[in-house]
Design a protein around this nucleic acid. Sequence first.
DNA 1: CATATATTTGGTTATTTTGCCAACTATGCA
DNA 2: TGCATAGTTGGCAAAATAACCAAATATATG
Lengths: 116, 116
Amino acid sequence: MQADKGISSMNQKKKKQLEARARIIKALAHPTRLFIVDELSGGEQCVCELTKMIGDDISTVSKHLSVLKQAGIVEDEKRGLQVWYSLRVPCILNFFGCIESVLEANAKQAREAVGR
Amino acid sequence: MQADKGISSMNQKKKKQLEARARIIKALAHPTRLFIVDELSGGEQCVCELTKMIGDDISTVSKHLSVLKQAGIVEDEKRGLQVWYSLRVPCILNFFGCIESVLEANAKQAREAVGR
DNA sequence: CATATATTTGGTTATTTTGCCAACTATGCA
DNA sequence: TGCATAGTTGGCAAAATAACCAAATATATG
């Protein structure tokens, strides 16, 4: 028994829960995908438009969108030739407030480390 | 000009900001590290105790802690033989509320997809 | 039907991340 | 001083990611 690695003494349920959370957070953990989420906070966008803004190959953008969709962060709808993406769970945005305060704390500490 | 890849038309400042955010989110994007953050929300812990709970090699746990520290999410303090870690920016916890609602939305959709 | 546009998918290579072991550092204590 | 305990660091192999190109799909239109 206990062939698994990590967090091994924990009950299986809590372990699954942590893995599920990590999958979603991982989906957000890329600059391009953060850009997309930020952009979609202003309303839906089609892949072509996002691709123009991002500047990567469209296949790369499409794969980023697929990661976000897979995680349940965005949803898509095909209309004619285009596919439109939108945020599925907008609270994702609050999220950034805290990230920002980590960054501020880091910056503050960096200033203090230099002497001011 | 514009040798960079991705989000290429964006101004440099916004780009840096997205990268900084992604770095922090990436630090959270692992089940073990989520476990640690969750654990530290109840107060500081030493590496030895976290290691017992997690069940990985202590060097593995130490590296996870180092990732979190590097990102500015936790801080450490050596006391005698032990090193105690604590959350540096507790708002990180709010964070999880939204992750949870993504998971719930996913689960709901999965149920509906099955026909109920 | 043939063609053009929008997007996804498959395949490949390069890079990053994980996790373990071994070696090293730091601290406390006999 | 010598030994034990707690943690970090270096090194390595395996696994996961990322980005590009080419090929495949799907839809609209002449």
